[in-house]
Design a binder for these strands. Structure first.
Lengths: 193, 193
DNA sequence: GTAATTTTGAAACGTTCATTTCAATTAAGA
DNA sequence: TCTTAATTGAAATGAACGTTTCAAAATTAC
């Protein structure tokens, strides 16, 4: 029987994520990935197929991490308001700890590649659909519980929240003032009440 | 005395803007720019110094165009509410006519380059400062006229609007449903009333 | 220990990258 | 018309690009 994959796939993906996140897809070279992962060039091609293949895995890895974080916070919450607040808190925390102003990998990738790579466009459509569905569900529950108003449909509020998250991710690249960001989020979320 | 520049600088910048907007900075090659502008390689280096130099001019050109559009709409408006509405209408119009989902050149560049190129970071800081100052001024006037509420300071509302604009620019890459976008904007702007 | 099969390392693939070079061309002022 | 200086075209620069190749090393099952 053959030799088996020796490296930790997650560790490699973590390292690759850091590079892609810092330099963007087009700004990252295969050499950067070889250096960061300490994997051999051939091993990368063996395991990930291509630069784009590796990037897709990185994107999923990054997204899964967010979904897990959000999932945990949601089960800890007692109502829809707390859930939404907890979700936004995750993003603020990431902004405040992102010392090199990288922004969000998914937002960055969306703006860089949606119009260039069909597979990225599909990923982003799925990402949007899933995020909207999650938010819509929370909003709907919040409206049932009379915590949120019913001036808009759950879908429209979900779209508003999704848009706000992306906006905050962009603003957070240059503005990392905690007080201003938290106030900003309160302004965003007050719309629901 | 010497021969003078024969090409129209604005026409060249227009063509270069289209390329950078479509492919991003790192995705654009000098050959792309030579092809698009029909300028010779040497002429580009003569007139713009470098790829980054040309890109900076493109960025200013693109930004100036927006400032002019907004300026015109502002003088046509009768109050703060109309001004803000007109500004957002410009962005919605651009989203709806952006058939290849390029998004906003400035937002794209911010997410791609702020953490890589100091000169881009400076540009974006200036862009943010100017945009916030403009919005703050409008909000302040709106509050004086009792058109807008005073739950937040003009600066905080400006930051909220600036963030919303960036968010809408990101959402608009994949979602080009006019009804949903206009509803979204009403949700955003209702906060002020 | 041997056979089987994958990972690994290092080099090489051909292409494209941003930039430079430089002689030829061009057009304005004297 | 001659001088002057910039524009132009085309080729060349060397480095970096993503990807492939292939023999050597490594690891598992028998």
């Amino acid at each position: 029987m053959p030799k088996v994959e020796t490296f930790s796939r997650n560790e490699v993906l973590q390292k690759a994520t850091e590079v892609f996140h810092t330099k963007g897809y087009n700004g990252t070279s295969m050499q950067d990935l070889v250096d960061a992962t300490t994997l051999n060039r051939s091993s990368i091609y063996n395991s990930f197929g291509s630069k784009l293949g590796m990037f897709m895995d990185v994107l999923s890895y990054y997204y899964t991490n967010y979904k897990n974080q959000i999932g945990k916070k949601i089960v800890q919450s007692h109502n829809a308001s707390e859930m939404i607040q907890a979700i936004f808190d995750i993003y603020v925390h990431d902004i405040l700890t992102d010392n090199d102003r990288k922004g969000c990998l998914i937002v960055n990738c969306k703006s860089e590649m949606v119009n260039q790579e069909p597979i990225i466009k599909s990923f982003m459509e799925q990402n949007q659909e899933q995020t909207l569905a999650m938010l819509e569900d929370i909003v709907h529950n919040g409206q049932m519980e009379k915590i949120f108003n019913q001036k808009q449909t759950p879908y429209q509020y979900a779209l508003y929240l999704y848009t706000s998250i992306q906006g905050i991710r962009m603003t957070g690249i240059l503005n990392t003032n905690e007080k201003e960001l938290k106030n900003l989020i309160q302004t965003v979320l007050n719309v629901l009440h």
